[in-house]
Amino acid sequence: MIVAVPHQATDQATDQSADQSTDPAPPRTARLHRPLTVAEAVEILADGDAEILAGGTDLVPALRARQREPRRLVALRRVLELRSRGASANMLIIGAGVTYHDLTGWSLSPGLAAMARVVGSPQIRNTGTVGGALGTANPRGDLLTFLSAVGTEIVINSARGARTVDVASFLATGLAPTELVTAVRLPRPCGPQVYLKIGSRQAASAALVSCALVVDRVHERVTCAIGGIAHQPTRPAAAEEFVRQGVDWSTGTIPADVVAGFGELVAEAAGAVPDPLPDDVGVSAAYRRHAAGVLAARAVGRCLPAAAPGAIPGSAGPGSAGPGSAGRFRS
C-alpha cells in the first residue's frame, strides 16, 4: 500500500536534492531585478541581455515552458511611476504599468475603457499592462489596434534618454533591448470612439478580428484600425479619406451609402495587405477580411448616426443606441 500524502509539508516540498553545481538543466535566467524607478530600470537594461517583465501574462507561461530564457529579468511591478495615468489639455498619458483593469472605468477615454473591458478574462485584465501589450506586440492585440486608430505616441526611455515614436513606427521597428516603454500618449477624445471585436466565444477571448474607430470632430476626420488581418494593425487610408469626405461634419451625420462604402473599402484594404496572417485554427483569413468590413461599417455607423446632430464628444449621441458605442460604456 502506498503511503502517499497530499503535498503539504513545507520543508520536504523544497527541492533540496538538487545540487546546483551539477544540475543538468540550470535555467538560464539568473537574475531578477526589481527596480523602483524608471531610472533604475533603464540603467539595468543598459547592460543588455535582460527581458522586461511587465504584467507577465505572456512571459511567465513562456518562462515555464522554457520558450524564453532571458539571462536577466527586470520586473516593473514596483515601479510606481509607471502606474500613473493622467491628462493634459489635449493629451492622455498612460503609464506602461497601467493594467487593463485600471482603464476599464476611465471616464476620460470611454473608447479606451470599452476596449479594456473586452480584453481577455478578469484575471488577464487585472494583470496585463499597457507596456506588456506593446512589448508582446501580438498582431491581434486589442490595445495595439486601438492605439493604432487613435494615433498614439509611444514614450521610450533608455539610459541615453527618452524618445517618442508613433505607434506604427514602433510596431515596424520595435524596441532596442536597452529600451523601456514608459508611457503612451494619445489625444483626448474629440468625438465618439468604438472598439468592436470578434472572439471565439462570448467572453474571455482573444481577438480574432477587431476594429477600432475614432471620430475627431475638431479636425473633422475618422481614423480606423483593423486587428487580425496582418502582422500589425491595418490602417485603411483610402477608406478613412472616403468617410471623411462623406460625413456631414456640420451635423455629425453620415449617409447610409457612405457607411456601406466605407465597409467595402475597409474589406478591400484588408485584402490588399502585403503580409496577411494565414488561416488559423478558429477562422479563415477570408472570413477575417469579410468581418473587417462589417465591423468597420458598424463602427462608423455607431459613431456617426444618421440623424443625431450635436452629440457631445465622448458619446455616440442620443440617436445611437447601438451596443458597443462608446457612450454606453461611460461610467
Binding site: V118, K197, I198, R201, Q202, A203, G322, P323, G324, R328
Partner: peptide
C-alpha cells in the same frame, strides 16, 4: 429588443453585434 443589453447579443461582452 432595443433594451437587450449588449452583453446578451451574439458575441456577448465583445460587443460587435448589431441588434
Amino acid at each position: 429588443s432595443d433594451r437587450t443589453p449588449v452583453t446578451s447579443l451574439p458575441g456577448g461582452r465583445l460587443a460587435a453585434a448589431d441588434p
